[in-house]
Nucleic acid binder design. Structure first.
Length: 564
RNA sequence: UGGGGUGUCGUCAAGCGGUAAGACACGGGCCUUUGGAGCCCGCAUUCGGAGGUUCGAAUCCUCCCACCCCAGCCA
């Protein structure tokens, strides 16, 4: 859970609540809700809202409900409900017995609608969708009243009952709130609040053929649950007058207050449900939980921790500015978390064979290596060493560039947790000219410390014993898009997918202790980055590792600068 | 040309009339058996612009500019 030494985030929403509390409003009660529609998986933008709503409830000793906003059966499903429940729990939040469904309120909502008709504040309209649009006017011109606007209460009541009874086809009638066709806010121009939709609902089946619209259902669901603060995103700001209008017409006593904040955008990815669905359905990714996806499921599979995601949500803040948060901040948050908790291990992604000429054939020894150099409490493990090892291809260069601190002709380098070795010779593939094997000698005096003669060895590289190593598939993930704001491009956003977002290395060599890595648990492969065994595809004997995030790479920067 | 919002460092974001927090990113240094981590230093004389009020303005007023949202029987 959140350490107590971290001050709770402060933002304009909490200020509003503080002010209300000081003024003695709402009996000091704070009740929020997280209201997803189960028509897709939760993503990092939802996580922001989850952290906000559950965070506020916890901070003020209140409650936060989880509510499925399932008022449009098209596209909604149990699969999504289950994923949402799973994801919110995984993020670290709990709603006790307060899992609710707007669909459970259908009868109550229907009665509210009847009440509105009886009050003369709603009428059944038989205009077609096109006609309603025409009558709505434009942003700069007022709308025109429907010829059915002054239908009698009795007739509307009768028609509404028959809508429910299934006497009419889709679109034949709608129920509209009677507000103001000349309102400068188009939302208030007699909004449709109920429509006929003969689509089976994943929970209510065919029980209903009419469904309430969002504007009607949401504010009243909030009221039914006695929500105090209904926190939503900025695009609903235009709908707030309608929210308040409905609640004022139908609810007595304490009324919920809608507060809007800016939705999250993250660079190099996409956070719109519509586009995420497209990526999944058109096969650009392997599914909602593809580790490249900004979904909670994808990030979980990638190896992100709930702590890192919560930390990110705290760091981005809550305001009303349109934003595009640098994805580097997200990466910094996982690194920060995993740096502290992930055990270290060695793995060689692109192996280069190294033979230690002066090491006895057939012999082996074990090095006691720290699981975490800064945290002895994490213990030690044994890492086997022998005559033939693998090192990273990029840790050897026959023509080393300036500032290169690794292995090359005439050079010495420290094998992490083991001996210092010196270059002796190399073998090349005769046809390709590629270096296929390097021969070295080791210095036995360097087993537990610096060379006996006091000479300085700067470079340290990681390695793995060839005979003891386990072969593994490693999946190198990178950002999904090549452009910072894929949602903002003029052409199809899929044109900007990063072709290098996934690189598969089929035969990386990992140290034996990694063979049993429990799927999902984060490790630091020293000098490389944070990795975890894949939740779905990693099996004993055939491990598969995902790269969560690379380590900060200052050599990479120097190397790039050198080329410029 | 309607209504609703927002404009503070490259990116988020504090600031609420008393003289620009912090984070990420970036640059430099120290240290190091991870070119990791850690530590140190630097990084907005200026807050979309122009006027005005005030001893004093990012904060108040006026005008202007830019961007976002709204014309689903989606949410």
């Amino acid at each position: 859970m959140t350490p107590s030494d971290i001050p709770p985030p402060t933002d304009f929403i909490r200020e509003i609540i503080d002010d209300e509390l000081r003024a003695g409003k709402r009996g000091g009660r704070v009740a929020t809700r997280f209201p997803p529609e189960p028509n897709g998986y939760l993503h990092i933008g939802h996580a922001k809202s989850v952290c906000l709503n559950f965070g506020i409830a916890a901070q003020y000793g209140g409650t936060c409900n989880l509510r499925m906003d399932d008022t449009d059966p098209a596209g909604e499903s149990l699969e999504y409900v289950e994923s949402i429940i799973n994801d919110v729990h995984w993020l670290g939040f709990d709603w006790a017995d307060r899992l609710f469904y707007a669909s459970d309120y259908f009868e109550q909502l229907y009665q509210f609608a009847v009440q509105l008709i009886k009050a003369g504040k709603a009428y059944v309209d038989s205009l077609s969708a096109d006609e309603i649009r025409e009558h709505r006017g434009t942003l700069t011109e007022p709308g025109r009243e429907s010829p059915n606007r002054n239908r009698s209460i009795e007739e509307s009541l009768d028609l509404f009952g028959r809508m429910r009874a299934g006497e009419f086809e889709d679109g034949a009638y709608v129920l509209r709130a009677k507000i103001d066709m000349a309102s400068p806010n188009v939302v208030m121009r007699d909004p449709v609040i109920y429509r006929i939709k003969r689509v089976p609902h994943y929970r209510t089946g065919t029980q209903w053929v009419i469904y309430p619209m969002y504007d009607f259902a949401h504010c009243l669901s909030d009221s039914i649950e006695r929500i105090t603060h209904s926190i939503c995103t900025l695009e609903f700001e235009n709908n707030r007058p309608l929210y308040d209008w409905l609640v004022n017409e139908l609810i007595t006593g304490d009324r919920p207050r809608q507060i809007e904040f800016a939705r999250l955008n993250v660079s190099y990815t996409i956070l719109s449900k519509r586009r995420l669905i497209q990526l999944v359905e058109q096969g650009y990714v392997a599914g909602w939980d593809d580790p490249r996806m900004p979904t909670v499921a994808g990030m979980r599979r990638r190896g992100y921790t709930p702590e890192a995601i919560r930390d990110f949500c705290a760091k981005i803040g809550v305001a009303k500015n349109d934003n595009l948060v640098d994805i580097a901040l997200l990466e910094a948050c996982v690194r920060d978390d995993l740096n502290e908790r992930a055990p270290r291990a060695m793995a060689v992604l692109r192996p280069l064979r190294v033979v230690i000429d002066n090491y006895p054939e057939g012999e082996a020894e074990e090095f006691e290596s720290a699981n975490h150099p800064q945290n002895p409490a994490m213990g030690m493990r044994k890492v086997p060493f022998s005559k033939v090892i693998y090192i990273e291809q990029e840790d050897f260069d026959e023509n080393p560039p300036k500032k290169y601190k690794r292995l090359g002709p005439g050079r010495e380098v420290r094998l992490r947790n083991a001996y210092v070795i010196r270059y002796e010779s190399m073998k090349k593939d005769e046809t390709t000219g590629e270096v296929v094997e390097v021969h070295c000698t080791y210095d036995p005096s360097t087993r537990n410390g610096p060379p006996a003669d006091g000479r300085k060895v700067e470079g340290v590289i990681h390695w793995v014993s060839a005979n003891h190593a386990v072969s593994a598939e490693v999946r190198l993930y990178d950002r999904l898009f090549q452009v910072p704001d894929p949602a903002g491009v003029a052409d199809d956003f899929t044109n900007h997918l990063n072709p290098g977002s996934l690189e598969i290395l089929p035969s990386a060599q990992i140290e034996p202790s990694l063979a049993l890595a429990p799927p999902g648990a984060g490790y630091q492969f020293e000098r490389l980055g944070y990795f975890c065994a894949d939740l779905k595809d990693s099996v004993a004997g055939k491990p598969v590792f995902n790269r969560i995030a690379p380590l900060r790479d200052s050599w990479g920067k120097i190397a790039v600068q050198g080329k410029r």
